[in-house]
Amino acid sequence: MKKLGWMALVAGALTSVGCGTEPLEESRARPVVERYAALVHENYSDAVTKARELRATVDAFVADPTEAKLTSARGAWLAARPAYGQSEAFRFYGGPIDDEDTGPEGRINAWPLDEAYIDSVEGAPEAGIINATTEYPTLSEELLISLNERDGETNIATGYHAIEFLLWGQDRSVTGPGNRPASDFVTAPNAARRRQYLKLATDLLVKDLESVQAQWAPGADNYGKKFSAQEPEEAVLQVLTGLGSLSGAELSGERMTVAYDNKDQEDEHSCFSDNTKADLYANALGIQNVYLGRYGTQDGKGLDELVAAVDAKLDTEMKQRLQASLDAIQAIPGPFDQAITGAENAEGRQKVKAAIDALKAQTDTLVDVATALGITLNLE
């Protein structure tokens, strides 16, 4: 199974549409492009705010590792996930988050994660970077960055899921998440290094998110400025590439179908905290956000206005598909790792399959949307 940093091979071409309305006419398309750039910044700003709140709770826990403060840190991690999950609609076209050379996505949200690469696990009490005191006598951000994805895509050393594993530990429960005790950070072997690792990973997460946020900040000479200044056709192609790639091969494929086919907890997105269903919902919500031009309470011109101008029926269908996907994900009984198990006629598996099918139908309609706007979108 590929990690989250998987990149779709997407090719787009601009084509003309027949006689009449120019689907991406400058005066109508430019405000949509500019709204997209503003929406991206709003979303990343929210993700940064939540990550800073997570950092504050981790700092408090590291300074005084009690069960109560561990619970608070877990709550802050869960609260930080929706904002980032929605932001994944901005991926897959080489933007700041996953630029081939400089994008930090692989450090932020890569998965699946081999727990034994970081710390001790059941049956291997001396496993992981934390316990490798001779090989890695000094922990640092630079070390964790250098070790992230070294010698394999499951060798994840940083990001949300490394932090998740440290906070929850392995999930051995069929009814709930992992339940690592606070004593692992106090009296267990290498407890001080475990605290240090948790703090380093959290600090790095905040820095990486801040770097992406800055690239979309309004009024700056950055990626967001260049994005907004390009021809609307090129900008809309990138937007639809991000939506189609997340909806199709990534969300319905890598994140859901692989786990559904394998019936393996290790293939789910947030396997330590049992937050996978919420992650999937946030991803789908991010796609809807972009199509409608909204984030939270902020609203503006979205792709829906461009589509409605050339094909009102298609716009209605797209909106229905987007909501149907959200509803289908919400209908999956939790936890996700149990929903994917059992016989084919088990309720959980049927609900997961229904959500996969809804996302596939949504992706097909996104391709139709692109066509209506004079864009050919070829998605892997």
Results as ranks from 00 to 15, higher is better:
residue 2 K to M: 14
residue 4 L to F: 09
residue 5 G to K: 14
residue 10 V to C: 05
residue 13 A to I: 10
residue 15 T to N: 12
residue 17 V to F: 07
residue 28 R to V: 08
residue 28 R to H: 10
residue 29 A to M: 03
residue 30 R to N: 00
residue 32 V to L: 07
residue 32 V to A: 04
residue 39 L to Y: 04
residue 39 L to M: 13
residue 45 S to T: 12
residue 46 D to L: 13
residue 46 D to T: 12
residue 49 T to Q: 14
residue 53 E to Y: 08
residue 59 D to R: 13
residue 62 V to R: 00
residue 65 P to A: 04
residue 66 T to E: 03
residue 67 E to S: 07
residue 75 G to I: 01
residue 84 Y to T: 01
residue 96 P to I: 06
residue 99 D to E: 06
residue 99 D to F: 03
residue 106 G to W: 10
residue 108 I to M: 10
residue 111 W to S: 04
residue 113 L to K: 04
residue 116 A to P: 05
residue 120 S to F: 10
residue 120 S to W: 12
residue 122 E to I: 14
residue 124 A to K: 13
residue 127 A to Q: 00
residue 136 Y to E: 07
residue 137 P to F: 05
residue 144 L to R: 06
residue 148 N to Y: 05
residue 150 R to T: 09
residue 151 D to N: 13
residue 168 W to N: 02
residue 170 Q to A: 15
residue 177 P to F: 00
residue 179 N to M: 11
residue 185 F to Y: 10
residue 191 A to V: 00
residue 208 D to H: 09
residue 210 E to A: 05
residue 210 E to P: 02
residue 212 V to R: 01
residue 215 Q to Y: 00
residue 219 G to Q: 01
residue 222 N to V: 07
residue 225 K to F: 08
residue 232 P to R: 01
residue 237 L to I: 14
residue 239 V to I: 15
residue 242 G to S: 00
residue 246 L to S: 04
residue 248 G to I: 04
residue 253 G to M: 05
residue 260 Y to G: 02
residue 264 D to C: 08
residue 265 Q to M: 15
residue 273 S to A: 09
residue 274 D to E: 09
residue 275 N to S: 04
residue 285 L to M: 13
residue 286 G to N: 04
residue 289 N to S: 00
residue 297 T to M: 12
residue 303 L to P: 01
residue 310 V to Q: 07
residue 312 A to L: 12
residue 312 A to S: 13
residue 312 A to E: 15
residue 313 K to P: 06
residue 316 T to K: 15
residue 317 E to D: 12
residue 324 A to T: 08
residue 326 L to V: 05
residue 326 L to P: 06
residue 336 F to S: 01
residue 340 I to Y: 01
residue 343 A to N: 12
residue 346 A to Y: 09
residue 351 K to D: 07
residue 353 K to H: 10
residue 359 L to D: 04
residue 366 L to C: 00
residue 367 V to Q: 09
residue 368 D to T: 11
residue 369 V to T: 09
residue 372 A to P: 05
residue 377 L to M: 03
